[in-house]
Design a protein around this nucleic acid. Structure first.
Lengths: 148, 148
DNA sequence: TTAAGTGCAAATATTTTGCTGTCAC
DNA sequence: GTGACAGCAAAATATTTGCACTTAA
């Protein structure tokens, strides 16, 4: 599940507003759903939760808001090994980057922070002279409980 | 582009045959396309190339063969940052694992091998007691030529 | 006021499934 | 000979686009 939300509530709203982006009722709702999520949600789940608060929210608005957040680097998009179809999952971008492990048997998703991950990114920046905007590491395999 | 093909030609055919899987004309063609590819191909490109050799090959057969290869751990599936739609790209799995950097401006894909990548995987296996089947690291950003 | 944003409908893109006939072994 | 595989059609899944109406700033 995503790391605990250590940002002030309304963080995403504030970030977008600071960039001069219009905050509509629908966006506020969708951003709230993403901020308070206790696990990785896909677009359909975000829509469902948003509609509990504001039934007029349209699927298209969810996709457009996700696109906006991606373009501004405020969320990360994950596959989680495409265990169930080709949908994507989203999470707030945190200052402490982490990798995701998905258990191919039980589907549980675990997050892991590592200095080696940071070192590896630093190595890429330096040795490949590549300016990293987004770095995603996803692992599939069997968790401690599921491996035989 | 994928690492140079250091395996014997017909490597994928041999691997599948060794597992008791039937080698049809269509499969042989598709496997040949994947083995000799000089860059990462998506399903549609694999289909087009296969059809140049064997026009009867169907799109569905390409997908079914890709699924087979994935299940047997003989290819890796990549997103390459979804720079152009949601399609996936495929490459032969090589013994030396590498990460992929995609330039968000020019779209060029670069591969990079690193011991840190291996160390990081080892750390996950040990500290998280997670048995890794597939590990994918994909980076998006700007290559040396494109960064301002 | 007005440009940015929304909802609805429809289109697009990618991948999967059902079924019948074919072929590798 | 037979069970695994192929092709075709259709469906399923996920996301995007066009356009007229609405609203935040």
């Amino acid at each position: 599940m995503p790391l605990p939300n250590t940002e002030a509530p309304g963080y995403l709203v504030a970030e977008l507003a600071a960039r001069g982006i219009r905050i509509t009722r629908q966006r506020r709702t969708i951003l709230g759903v993403i901020e308070t999520a206790n696990r990785h949600l896909d677009a359909a789940q975000i829509l469902r939760r948003a509609r509990r608060q504001a039934p007029e929210v349209d699927r298209v608005t969810v996709y457009r808001t996700l696109g906006l957040l991606k373009r501004h680097g405020l969320i990360d998009e994950l596959d989680l090994m495409h265990l169930q179809g080709e949908k994507h999952f989203y999470e707030r971008k945190t200052p402490r980057e982490h990798l995701h492990m998905t258990c191919l048997r039980c589907g549980r998703v675990t997050e892991f922070e590592s200095r080696l991950f940071d070192s590896l990114k630093k190595q890429v920046q330096t040795e490949c002279r590549f300016h990293i905007i987004v770095a995603r590491m996803e692992i599939g395999g069997y968790c401690a409980e599921c491996r035989s």
